[in-house]
Design a protein around this nucleic acid. Structure first.
Lengths: 124, 124
DNA sequence: CCTGGTTCCATGCGATGCAAGATACCTGGT
DNA sequence: ACCAGGTATCTTGCATCGCATGGAACCAGG
């Protein structure tokens, strides 16, 4: 997918990411702190959720503003220092809450997309 | 869920609907034309995608503006006339396109939420 | 006439992803 | 010492979308 791609598919995928990206980023911090570029690479590797710095850094700022993550600076062996993001208790709670409501949402969309069984044709 | 509910769960669900609602509405028109209130009731019945008129009617206006649906007025036995929305060829193509990219997106989110195996710990 | 149910629509706000650009640190070659 | 390239962070302005709120029109019954 080249940059500047304005196909319908690209636009649909962009809208799909809304609201989900936040929780996928939180999920990435579940096991250990991560820094910005690391998160970016993990999303890129997933394929469907690949995004850009212009999306991730404002998102990380919001997470910090809302006390869902805390950050610590850490030196890097090769490059400028990195800001590591770690989940707070609130962040972990938000992630668990999303994990609870996601299956219901996912299954509802699946139900709409898979042809609902009009077994009898029309019975009305 | 009362109106004016500003819990985290409600906000997360609201953001989830972005971009998905459009295609679920298109999916509802796949077998036959539907009118506004009928779509609203079908979404309400799904549970996870329940929404309001203030969401559905602007959405339908966008679909019509983008030539994804056409509309025809039809008399009702009980009440004012109804505007029925039907898929155009473009609308059907958009629905099929979304149906293609949805599984990849869904599975990617599932992968993030279910603990990814950090088998090696850190190898860097 | 007037109340209630049904159906349609418009306006303004808040939240979010994105492209583009800016800044700073470190390493290596000349 | 100097400069180019990669790494890493962040800001700004824009477009899109869900939603609360409110309004308008039609029909039936008292």
């Amino acid at each position: 997918m080249e940059p500047g791609d304005s196909t319908k598919q690209a636009r649909a995928a962009a809208q799909l990411r809304k609201g989900v990206l936040e929780y996928c980023v939180l999920a990435l911090m579940r096991d250990r702190p991560r820094y910005g570029v690391e998160l970016l690479q993990a999303l890129e590797a997933s394929g469907a959720l690949a995004t850009s710095q212009g999306t991730v850094y404002p998102l990380l700022s919001r997470l910090r503003r809302d006390d869902l993550v805390t950050t610590t600076w850490q030196e890097s062996a090769s490059g400028p220092p990195r800001r590591y993001y770690a989940l707070t208790d609130s962040g972990r709670a938000a992630l668990e809450e999303f994990t609870r409501i996601w299956p219901g949402f996912r299954d509802a969309v699946d139900a709409f997309l898979t042809t609902p069984p009009p077994t009898t044709g029309d019975l009305a």
